[in-house]
């Protein structure tokens, strides 16, 4: 009997050793790797995301769950045949040029990965060209940009204009976030969406490419 509930519980509790062990047992018992992801890992990350959004969990709990999820994925990935994995989509994410704050960006990246997206994380202080090149190389459908400073969030508009100039804007949904960013700012610079927390970002990403 395959026990996916125990995987869900371990990831939600952030117990990465238990999560990995339970995943191994489930696979040994014949569970479908994609089923483990869809019914064990993703629901657990969605639940911790909801708790975070509701103020019932904090950054450390999110990160513990992210580790459990990531460690479990490492066990599962080799078993997913080429093209067999059902990724929700590809996302390029990064903190804009001139900004080194990445806690929020990392949470969003973990959450997106946790709900099934393939995430290409470019890190901090990302130049405009690097965003464009990565989107092109990876054929990503979504670009997520983060900034913490009012003095750097203006770079988001620069990247969007560069996307337009490169003729890529139609094929890429742009999401923005970070402390000084607002819904109004996102609309003004021509972004497709804004979110103020990791869980909302994951939901928005799914909606944008539905």
């Amino acid at each position: 009997m395959v026990n996916l509930r125990s995987i869900y519980e371990a990831v939600l509790a952030g117990k990465f050793n238990d999560a990995v062990e339970n995943v191994k047992q489930a696979l040994a018992a014949g569970a479908d790797p994609q089923q483990v992801i869809n019914e064990g890992l993703i629901p657990a990350m969605e639940e911790i995301g909801k708790r975070f959004e509701a103020g019932q969990a904090f950054v450390p709990q999110m990160l513990l769950s992210a580790r459990a999820m990531k460690s479990s994925l490492e066990v599962i990935k080799p078993l997913l045949g080429a093209g067999a994995g059902s990724s929700a989509g590809k996302v390029v994410i990064g903190t804009v040029k001139g900004d080194l704050h990445d806690i929020g960006k990392n949470l969003v990246a973990s959450m997106l990965e946790g709900v099934g997206f393939e995430v290409i994380d470019l890190g901090i202080d990302v130049p405009t060209e690097k965003f464009i090149d990565s989107l092109r190389e990876n054929k990503a459908q979504i670009l997520c940009m983060s900034a913490l400073l009012t003095t750097t969030m203006t770079m988001m508009e620069v990247v969007i204009r560069a996307l337009e100039e490169a003729g890529m804007r139609q094929g890429v949904k742009v999401m923005v976030g970070g402390a000084p960013v607002t819904e109004n700012f996102a609309a003004r610079i021509g972004a497709d969406g804004y979110s103020d927390n990791a869980n909302a970002a994951a939901k928005l990403a799914k909606r944008l490419i539905a």
């Binding site: 950054v59 450390p60 513990l64 580790r67 990531k70 460690s71 806690i103 973990s110």
Partner: peptide, 10 residues
């Protein structure tokens, strides 16, 4: 993948 450890360091 010890994101919590990294976060505490940060």
């Amino acid at each position: 993948f010890d994101y919590l450890g990294g976060f505490v360091v940060d």
